[in-house]
Design a protein around this nucleic acid. Structure first.
Lengths: 219, 219
DNA sequence: CCAGCGAAGATTGTGTGCAACTTAAGATCG
DNA sequence: CGATCTTAAGTTGCACACAATCTTCGCTGG
């Protein structure tokens, strides 16, 4: 059997990312321990690790909560992504083999199909595909320092259930960016790829900030 | 009394940064527990947190070791710093009050005095001053996302006991950079400050990479 | 002599009990 | 009636014990 703390980390991360625990929700240790079928010890370790990832916040003697983001913090996260992810994309270009391009192309195409308005549209299916796309790109860059620095930042938009907040034009742009990044990668042009990634992130930033502002005022 | 795990994190971080545990050294839990006067539980938590900071590496069922850096990883860390720290510096400029400029000026001047060749030179004294200087700049930027992303990277050079590896010309440049950054900050010019910070990091990178190469070949 | 195997020792992973702290409700006093 | 103190319930922090895993050393066989 795999390690209990390992399972706890994965399970809890999925629960949070999937929205079972909304932002700000309290994460009691005994509650999680029962739910995950382990004792409090691995739960504590899982919370500590997710805290390092930025998914939960731990207040001493007061327990853990799912991280909640102010508009300002959300903008800050996108600034960080804008600083790092284009660089990683550029690094990935010369390292990509043909097969990597094929895999990314497949992902980008599937996202376009699933994201296109109509009866087949499934915005929830976009989330894992998007994670996979960006994850593969980061892996190709083969730059652990930047990858870990980025890791804490990428979860924030996901927690906000992002694709439902995209307006049609922004969503179309976002999906087109993926396709264009693959094209730039296949053309072996890191500057092109990085530029599209920059645009991609700024587009996402605009969507998320608008949504967060709206949610904040609406509440 | 303050929390045991908190003390353990701080104490262990200082021990590693101070060089009591060389890179690659094994960190047995019972050994640390006895040394720090706590039980294994807070030690494990401390190791987990320092692992998130990048100071130690944990292998499942095989314990923790002080992170050791290959030349390639070291270069990667400096790439990350080059991507983030100039931005943070630029952000810090408009937020700095006169008192902040004074404090940074004081630090920069003390570093110049302590770093100047002669009987008063004390390269070990530079380490905490340098940490404080960069730390204050990061704090001024008031950008938690970037700050935490950077946190893991800044330790690496310190672990390598850096200032002893500087040749006189590079050291002089490095100390001059600090002074110039303060000047740019006082002039309210973020572009200037960011540019000097970029140069500062590239200068450090050249020194560290050369030293790491030398150490690797010498061993 | 070397490779592979096996058992003992050591170390990490997990469960559980108790102490310390936080928090919220109720009582007491102004 | 409102504010503050008290108290009790619940939760986290820590220590310790046991289980699982890894490592090392010795042994056997080729």
């Amino acid at each position: 059997m795999t390690r209990a703390s390992e399972r706890a980390v994965g399970a809890l991360r999925e629960l949070i990312l999937h929205g079972d625990f909304p932002a700000g929700a309290r994460l009691g240790e005994v509650e999680l321990a029962e739910r995950l079928g382990v004792s409090r010890t691995p739960v504590r370790e899982a919370l500590a690790r997710l805290s390092a990832e930025g998914l939960v916040e731990i207040a001493p003697n007061r327990g853990a909560r799912v991280t909640s983001w102010t508009v300002g913090e959300l903008e800050a996260v996108f600034e960080l992504r804008a600083a790092l992810e284009p660089r990683l994309t550029a690094l990935a270009v010369p390292r990509a083999a043909t097969a990597d391009g094929d895999a990314l192309d497949d992902l980008a195409e599937r996202m376009v199909r699933v994201g296109r308005p109509g009866p087949d549209q499934d915005l929830d299916a976009l989330v894992p595909l998007n994670r996979e796309f960006h994850g593969r790109l980061v892996a190709l860059a083969d730059h652990p320092a930047m990858a870990t620095a980025l890791a804490g930042a990428v979860h924030a938009p996901i927690v906000l259930r992002n694709f439902h907040t995209y307006d049609p034009a922004s969503l179309r742009r976002s999906l087109a960016h993926h396709v264009e990044i693959v094209a730039a990668l296949r053309a072996g042009d890191p500057t092109w790829a990085a530029a599209v990634m920059t645009a991609h992130i700024h587009n996402a930033r605009a969507v998320m900030v608008r949504a967060a502002r709206h949610a904040q005022e609406g509440a």
